[in-house]
Design a binder for these strands. Structure first.
Length: 739
DNA sequence: TCGCGCTGTCATAGG
DNA sequence: AACCTATGACAGCGC
């Protein structure tokens, strides 16, 4: 027979393993250190939650009725545990609001730039003041990020220790993955940093205030554009976006661009929510606060990502006389461009770097097809403008299939999930936790943990009427009074006065409805240990008068069969008080009771054995019930975690969908911008020969496609190498830890 | 007859 | 030290 110990121990271990397999980190340390006892109990042995319960004291104070001495602790524990699980789930997948703003503006020859300014969300534009906020200090940024992450958690109602101290490597890796995805999409790591965003919003306010004082600027967002200080999303560096005056390069009809964008993009009325200095500069595109881009790109109002996609300061082409597009400082900068390299943005600007991370626009912005006159079908096949960005992110790292495999969801489920989301069917993965399943779970819980419910019923029924409990079992003719009388009559025991109603107190959780009636307990065991032969003989002897077949005798026989062995022994040894008293009286009262009677050594020995066995019996019942409760609660936790996981997976699918939308929008924007670029002769650039490239230093360059292709390939290689190295490191760590 | 689950009991550890 | 509880292990019983 499989021992109960082995069964339960392995069962708990299996649950733990199951939790790990489904991707839930069983943070034993948390439980070992958080005053949450059960797992510690399981692993290290009993302590607080499973500490001894003074049942006799409970009985003394509360009479022991309906008391589940462990339930309170267990409930608290599992509630806390669920919260911790949810917190952990949140810190792994909850992505803070992401707003990616980008502007396309145009700078007039005097350096005046008009534009509008997004007011909230991820502020990619910056000012000199923003440099102080973000700073180049990555260490500070990291801490801010994590702090902000923690705040996000707290905003969600979760209480968690400081993230920096609690995040495991897995968590950090997940954050990094999400961060890289957002970086690849143009969102800086600061999107995870609520405080950082707050600061930037404050800066925005300052900028707006400054803009009101600046007559140079026509629009409120112009101030930010004027300063053109950009935040590198990856490094956190802030620097001004500048365009060396490439006077001989691209000419862009910005009025046309503006009109075009107003027509093609749903920003028309916002483009009107800004002032355009048409005389000197034109705003190619502007995305004011709360602008339509958010409308376009954001999902449902409660969607965690609010994607404002715009191209801050990605102004292209001033006029034929002035290629510099952005800041006033441009004029002071030398025209560094050549015929091959057409810098559109000064080298110290990282506006787009902030928006798109370090992604090379050569890979980012190559449209598969460029409309307009620039089409060159004879040219090389144009890559997907966002191929390096979203394909990498979506297909390589966060594809649903990967997600399904990595996180234990089968691919079919994942694809169904995606379909479900795409169809907006509203189907919920929570079906696994439907009310029916819940009820069934609860039902199984209550049924399998019958000890608790039955104990309650037994206690209540016994306290009110023992006969009612008895009749429920089909027996008739019993009442405690009559039973007492019958027993006295039949047994003739000296001083034997069973108080069965009191016996009901023996166990607060006796699993048997008959437990309050020990003599009805079905005990067929033949434990003859610790029994003197004489006592055994006496116990086995039929009681006097048992041969008579009267009704009372039949009842007596029946009751006699229902009595426990210890009761038989006590009766045989003529113990003058009930086993209930023997077992449940506090030791002082128990000793006092013993002192009232003249008992033989054999009687005293039996009484002590009865007391010991009776207490141990209850303890064993409690122990088994606790094990069962623990298993059931673990089962419920697994269900909860699976439900959370399904929700998170659904959210992830939503993110992926929004990423696709962003990809499409950025792609079309690239096409529009590129299509409007004109060389000094007023001719469009060929997309097969030129491409916009976003250099690592923040510049936006119009470069030959061959060069752009090379750089794009180089960019693609880097993340893969990094991942490969990471895997090697982790495997090395595993190997080390195994050793 | 065998396997399984339930129950009681013992032995032991620990509070 | 005595007492109590918790729990692993074992055995008996009924199904």
């Amino acid at each position: 027979m499989l021992s109960l110990k082995k069964y339960l121990t392995e069962g708990l271990l299996q649950f733990t393993i199951l939790l790990s397999l489904i991707g839930v980190r069983v943070d034993v340390d948390t439980y070992l250190t958080s005053q949450l006892p059960p797992l510690r109990e399981i692993i290290l042995g009993p302590s607080s939650a499973y500490t001894q319960t003074q049942f006799h004291n409970l009985r003394n104070t509360l009479d022991g009725y309906g008391i589940h001495p462990k339930s309170i602790d267990l409930d608290n524990y599992f509630t806390a545990r669920r919260l911790l699980s949810q917190v952990r789930a949140l810190d792994r997948f909850q992505v803070p609001t992401t707003e990616v703003n980008a502007w396309l503006v145009h700078r007039d020859p005097e350096g005046s730039v008009s534009g509008s300014q997004p007011s909230s969300g991820l502020t990619l534009e910056s000012s000199s003041g923003l440099q102080d906020v973000t700073g180049p200090d990555n260490g500070v940024r990291e801490s801010e990020t994590e702090q902000g992450f923690s705040e996000d958690l707290e905003d969600l109602g979760a209480v968690a220790p400081p993230v920096s101290g609690d995040l495991t490597k897995e968590d950090i890796d997940l954050i990094d993955i999400l961060w890289r995805q957002d970086i690849d999409l143009g969102a800086g790591r600061e999107i995870f940093d609520y405080s950082h965003r707050q600061k930037e919003q404050d800066v925005d306010k300052d900028l707006q205030d400054g803009a009101e004082r600046e007559d140079t600027w026509s629009g409120e967002g112009a101030e930010a554009l004027a300063r053109n200080l950009l935040v590198d999303g990856e490094t956190g560096e802030s620097f001004p976006a500048q365009v060396p005056g490439g006077e001989d390069q691209t000419a862009l009809s910005l009025e046309e661009c503006l009109r075009l964008l107003e027509a093609t993009c749903p920003f028309g009325e916002n483009a009107e929510a800004m002032e355009v200095n048409t005389s000197t500069s034109e705003i190619l595109y502007s995305a004011p606060p709360g602008d339509p881009l958010s409308t376009n790109y954001s999902l449902a109002p409660n969607t965690p990502i609010n994607q404002n996609v715009s191209l801050h300061q990605a102004s292209l082409g001033g006029c034929s006389q002035d290629f510099s597009l952005f800041s006033p400082e441009v004029e002071s900068l030398p025209a560094a461009s050549s015929s091959a390299l057409l810098p559109l943005v000064p080298s110290n600007s990282t506006s787009l770097n902030s928006t798109f991370g370090s992604t090379n626009l050569a890979g980012l912005f190559f449209p598969p097809q460029l409309n307009g006159t620039a089409n060159d079908t004879a040219g090389p096949e144009l890559p997907d403008p966002l191929g390096g960005l979203l394909d990498e992110a979506m297909l390589d790292e966060i594809s649903l299939m990967d997600l399904a495999i990595e996180e234990g969801f089968n691919p079919v489920q994942a694809s169904q999930l995606e379909e479900e989301f795409d169809s907006d069917s509203g189907l919920s993965l929570d079906s696994s936790h439907s009310p029916s399943s819940l009820s069934s779970s609860e039902g199984s819980s209550s049924s399998s943990s019958s000890s608790s419910s039955s104990s309650a019923s037994s206690s209540s029924s016994a306290s009110s009427s023992a006969s009612s409990s008895f009749s429920e079992e089909g027996a008739v003719g019993y009442s405690s009074d009559s039973e007492t009388l019958d027993l006295e009559e039949a047994e003739g025991a000296v001083g034997y006065q069973p108080e069965y109603s009191k016996l009901c107190r023996m166990s607060y959780q006796d699993p048997s409805p008959l437990s309050c009636l020990p003599y009805l307990e079905h005990v067929g065991h033949n434990h003859t240990y610790n029994m003197a032969p004489s006592a055994l003989d006496a116990a086995d002897l039929p009681p006097p008068g048992a041969l008579k077949k009267g009704g009372k005798e039949k009842q007596a026989d029946f009751l006699d069969k229902q009595m426990s062995r210890d009761e038989h022994r006590a009766r045989a040894m003529k113990i003058p008080f009930t086993n209930d008293k023997i077992i449940n009286l506090p030791v002082e009262e128990f000793n006092e009771l013993l002192s009232k009677y003249q008992l033989s050594e054999a009687q005293l020995s039996l009484i002590r054995d009865i007391r010991r066995r009776g207490k141990n019996k209850m303890a064993a019942q409690n122990c088994r019930k606790r094990k069962l409760d623990t298993i059931l609660n673990l089962e419920r936790d697994v269900e909860d975690l699976q439900r959370d996981k399904a929700r998170l997976l659904r959210e992830k699918v939503e993110f992926l969908r929004s990423l696709r939308q962003m990809k499409q929008k950025v792609q079309s924007l690239y096409q529009e911008v590129f299509g409007r670029l004109r060389d000094e002769n007023g001719r469009p650039y060929s997309p097969s020969q030129y491409a916009l490239q976003y250099a690592g230093d923040g510049s936006v360059l119009l470069i030959p496609r061959t060069l752009a292709d090379q750089q794009a390939r180089r960019q693609e290689r880097k993340p893969k190498d990094r991942r490969k190295k990471k895997i090697q490191d982790s495997s090395k760590a595993c190997y080390t830890s195994d050793k």
